[in-house]
Amino acid sequence: FRLPDNISLDEGAVIEPLACAVHGCKRAEISAGDKVLICGVGTIGLLSMLTAKQMGASKICVTDISSSLLEAAKHLGADHVALVESQDAHVIITKIHQALGGPPDITLECSGTASGISMSIPVCYCSQATRSGGVVVLVGLGPHNVTLPIIDVIVREVDVRGSIRYGKCYSIALDLIASGKVNVKPLITHHFKLEDSVKAFETSRNGDGGAIKVLIHCNQEASI
């Protein structure tokens, strides 16, 4: 895919994760008026939030264990944020329902953690997270095997859907950036030269300095 003239190389580096976010949101079939919960707001979670807004979500609540990422989410337009401080799913889900004024229609699980997946599909003994008849899309890659409250999923008819990669959504991601409908520039937080690649990976892994999207520049003349 050729980059349009109005998309920089920096923005081009974010097209792949944006395409993944677009595919996840399309799998969820987000439409106007939907209340959406996004669990985990790393790069994919934040881009999923921006995409969900463009698809018509009326309210978006995001959760994470990082207060700095939640601040970034608020800055980018999240309607509500919930810091995950407790292992008690009931506490977290209560926060979500209070924020959204009820259970979300759609949950995008972007953290990839087993606990995050268990929260998206309500455990039997606590308040329900995703509404009955709602949709849960597993975007983040978690452990090979997880335990799900399958009876709860069955009796409440919660649709659980997988999402992998970008599903022919590159052109959509390009259009979203080129048109200005999705601004990815605030997600690009750090720049490194090629010889500092190890430091770049460490920064990304540890989330140093509020790291979200970390870029490594192969062109030594690039402005860093």
Rank of each mutant, 00 (worst) to 15 (best):
H217S: 10
L69Q: 15
I188M: 13
C110L: 11
K59A: 07
G40T: 05
I15V: 15
A222P: 02
M119F: 14
P143V: 13
A114L: 03
P17N: 07
I106V: 10
L83Q: 12
M49N: 06
L141R: 04
S48P: 09
S223Y: 02
D105T: 08
H190N: 15
R2M: 10
L83P: 04
V155T: 03
K35N: 05
P149W: 09
V214R: 10
L108S: 00
S197T: 14
A28R: 02
H80D: 02
T189K: 14
L141M: 15
S115C: 01
K74A: 10
K53C: 07
G210Y: 05
G207Q: 11
V137W: 00
I15E: 10
V153I: 01
T51H: 07
L138G: 06
C169V: 07
A211L: 09
V158G: 03
A89R: 12
G207A: 11
C110T: 06
F192W: 09
E11N: 01
P103R: 13
G162M: 09
E221Q: 07
V84H: 02
D175C: 07
I164D: 01
A28K: 04
K59I: 00
A52E: 07
R27N: 09
H97N: 15
L37Y: 01
G112M: 05
P186C: 13
P186Y: 08
L3G: 11
S223V: 05
I154T: 03
E157M: 05
A13F: 11
T189G: 12
A32I: 14
L176H: 01
I96G: 12
H217W: 15
N6T: 12
F201I: 12
I121E: 03
F1V: 12
G112T: 02
V123S: 15
C126Q: 11
V214C: 13
C20W: 06
D152A: 13
P104S: 06
P4F: 08
N6G: 11
P149F: 08
P17D: 03
F201S: 11
H23V: 10
I15Y: 11
G210V: 13
A173C: 01
D34L: 03
A52K: 00
K95C: 12
D79L: 06
S66N: 13
A173W: 03
N206K: 15
A19G: 13
I224R: 00
G42K: 12
I60V: 01
D196V: 07
I92Y: 12
G140F: 14
L50I: 10
H144M: 12
I216F: 07
H80A: 03
V214S: 11
V184Q: 04
I60F: 02
H144P: 06
A73T: 00
I7P: 04
N219R: 01
I212M: 06
I212E: 00
S58Q: 00
C110S: 08
M55G: 02
G140M: 14
Q98H: 14
V22F: 01
I7S: 06
I172Y: 08
Q220W: 07
G101R: 02
P104G: 00
L141A: 14
R165Q: 12
V198Y: 02
G140H: 14
L76D: 04
L176D: 05
K181R: 15
L50N: 02
D79S: 07
A73S: 05
L50H: 09
A222Q: 04
G116T: 10
I224W: 02
T107D: 02
G42P: 09
A52L: 08
V22Y: 07
K181Y: 05
H80I: 03
V182Y: 09
